[in-house]
């Protein structure tokens, strides 16, 4: 579904990603771990088409299509979703209005009919139950005055509503208490299907206690230095990232 080949990315003239190779197939869950500043969030944002990131080399294919040629909205319509590390507040725009506009644009691009306001509200409320959000959040302004945890849940809600093919969760687990973490994990597992791929970007192994990834990749200094299964995450938890910096370990398992 997703193929990243030799991806180099600059931010403000500094190279952050320095040759990423990654392939994700439908049905798989991949995790990207790595120390602060290794480029994890950059990778997530580049996938969504963030305008501040400049791709200098390499390519990204999504369903065989060149993703880098698509605008952010076209990526979303073709099935890419990014749960933001720092969700954006939009005062004056209600959650339900925003989400219905998004869903209807995605539906229109697929030749589906618009969902009217009342049908959508019923649909939204079902999804809100899954993330244990009070119905009043539908009429609140997007992320405006939400707590950190509420913002993260709102990202998960958007994922459930928009039903993407590739969901990229950028540190959605950060700053959550254990109950919220379990909730986010449960919803992520709900999304798991043969047609869908999930990419989890995280600092911590603890999320992986609840969401079982098929692959774990370690990103350091803009490159994937090691890939493995779930046990790699456990080893990281125990030993930290430093041991991987040793010469010879770069090619990894």
């Amino acid at each position: 579904m997703l193929q990243i080949k030799n991806l180099h990315v600059n931010v403000n003239g500094t190279e952050i990603l320095r040759g990423i190779h990654l392939e994700i197939r439908g049905g798989e869950i991949h995790t990207i771990m790595g120390p602060n500043g290794s480029g994890k969030s950059t990778l997530a944002r580049v996938l969504a088409g963030h305008p501040d990131y400049e791709v200098t080399e390499g390519e990204i294919l999504f369903k065989g299509e060149n993703l880098l040629e698509l605008s952010p909205e076209k990526r979303a319509r073709s099935g890419v979703f990014l749960a933001f590390q720092y969700p954006v507040e939009i005062p004056g725009v209600t959650n339900s209005y925003f989400l219905r506009a998004a869903l209807n644009e995605i539906r229109a691009s697929r030749g589906l009919e618009e969902m009217d306001a009342s049908d959508f509200l019923a649909f939204l409320k079902e999804k809100m139950k899954l993330v244990e959000m009070d119905a009043s959040f539908a009429s609140r302004f997007v992320n405006d005055g939400f707590s950190g945890g509420e913002k993260k849940r709102n990202e998960v809600l958007q994922m459930l509503v928009l039903e993407p093919l590739l969901a990229v969760l950028d540190e959605t687990d950060s700053g959550l208490d254990i109950d919220a973490l379990k909730l986010v994990s449960r919803c992520t597992n709900l999304m798991r299907s043969k047609e869908r791929a999930i990419l989890l970007v995280t600092h911590y192994q603890r999320l992986l206690n609840y969401v079982q990834p098929d692959f774990v990749h370690v990103l350091m200094d803009g490159r994937i230095v090691k890939s493995g299964g779930r046990d790699l995450a456990l080893k990281l938890e125990e030993l930290g990232y430093e041991w991987m910096r040793e010469p010879g370990s770069l090619k990894g398992a």
């Binding site: 969504a48 088409g49 963030h50 305008p51 605008s71 952010p72 909205e73 990526r75 979303a76 319509r77 979703f81 990014l82 933001f84 969700p87 954006v88 939009i90 925003f98 989400l99 506009a101 998004a102 869903l103 644009e105 995605i106 691009s109 958007q158 928009l162």
Partner: peptide, 8 residues
């Protein structure tokens, strides 16, 4: 960008 990333 946030809105565009949702398909808008």
């Amino acid at each position: 960008f946030y809105l565009k990333s949702r398909g808008i």
